[in-house]
């Protein structure tokens, strides 16, 4: 069992390494976007898949990461890597701040708070012209590594892949850790978990903070890829798209996060002709997925895989 898992992981990795060859500039860019989105999907795996909490404001954390890193690199002259890390940490701090008040109440308050938060962040970034450039936006330097600028998205893609793998590894560790399992226990039955000595507020704050950190890192990396930030990017629509891709890819699997990232990055390319209805299609696929494939597209892949490899499977 463990062996097949390793083989699958190696195969996926080989595919990810080989994929960009021969794709051309735009292909590299798209592949980079896949990775950036997949990091957000990973963050929603932690929050929704393990924590059972929902956020419709991840654009807010994405924006904080992007603007945070851009400003720290341009205004303070920090190196790119530290900028990205700082972007993640700023987002994480705000993640904890948003989760804190909503925790005292059960139910959907946290989701509502995240919605308000994302709109608030977008507006502050827009109004605070002296810092963020407001309407004009903000120029962001290209990523650089040890003094070398990664001018090409081909090279940047491999850096993004490495960061994605790092975050995926952390996610896996978290899922096996006591904190992660406490979080999943709270999702299964919060009453039972609390009566086992597991503190609900603490673990939901942890989930929210990790999730916001991943998203902030992704946003920071995205800003350096685009080279220019404007507040319109961080709209409600992108929050909702994030949610869609995470659910469609699969909320309980790191490979699912990758699939979700690919969906969100590539679907617009395939749906060029019906640009107007693209979001409608997202909405429809989201509902169909929740109804018929609650574990996401990856569950189909897994099922096909198990049928192919273990004919005597009992379950």
């Amino acid at each position: 069992m463990n062996l097949t898992r390793t083989i699958v992981a190696v195969l996926i990795l080989a595919l990810l390494v080989a994929l960009p060859f021969g794709l051309g500039q735009y292909g590299y860019y798209l592949m980079a976007i896949v990775m950036i989105y997949a990091m957000v999907a990973l963050s929603l795996n932690v929050l929704i898949g393990m924590g059972g909490q929902i956020s419709i404001g991840h654009a807010g954390f994405w924006a904080l990461g992007a603007y945070g890193s851009a400003l720290i690199v341009t205004k303070l002259g920090f190196p790119f890597f530290l900028g990205v890390l700082a972007g993640g940490l700023i987002a994480a701090a705000f993640g904890a701040l948003v989760a804190l008040p909503a925790l005292r109440v059960q139910g959907h308050y946290l989701a509502i708070a995240t919605l308000g938060f994302a709109l608030f962040v977008q507006q502050v970034l827009f109004e605070w012209e002296s810092l963020t450039g407001g309407r004009q936006g903000l120029f962001v330097p290209r990523p650089s590594l040890f003094g070398f600028e990664l001018r090409d998205d081909f090279a940047y893609y491999y850096l993004l892949l490495a960061i994605f793998l790092l975050l995926a590894w952390i996610t896996g560790n978290f899922a096996r850790s006591h904190s992660g399992r406490s979080l999943m226990a709270l999702k299964m039955s919060s009453v039972a978990a609390e009566c086992c000595g597991i503190a609900r507020p603490k673990h939901i704050i942890i989930a929210f903070t990790i999730s916001a950190f991943f998203t902030g890192v992704s946003g920071a990396l995205y800003g350096h890829l685009l080279g220019h930030l404007s507040t319109e990017t961080f709209s409600l629509a992108i929050s909702l798209s994030f949610l869609t891709m995470a659910v469609i890819g699969g909320l309980h699997s790191r490979a699912g996060a990758l699939l979700g990232g690919a969906y969100l990055a590539l679907a617009p390319e395939l749906m060029r002709e019906f640009k107007d209805v693209q979001m409608v299609i997202y909405g429809v696929t989201l509902i169909l997925c929740v109804q018929f494939l609650p574990r996401g597209l990856i569950s189909v892949v897994e099922r096909v895989w198990t049928i192919g490899t273990t004919p005597h499977a009992t379950r």
Partner: peptide
């Protein structure tokens, strides 16, 4: 949480 996600799908559908 699934019903909640579905209402967000509805949001996108009606909006666009």
């Amino acid at each position: 949480v699934n019903a909640l996600i579905a209402t967000i799908g509805l949001w996108m559908i009606f909006h666009h």
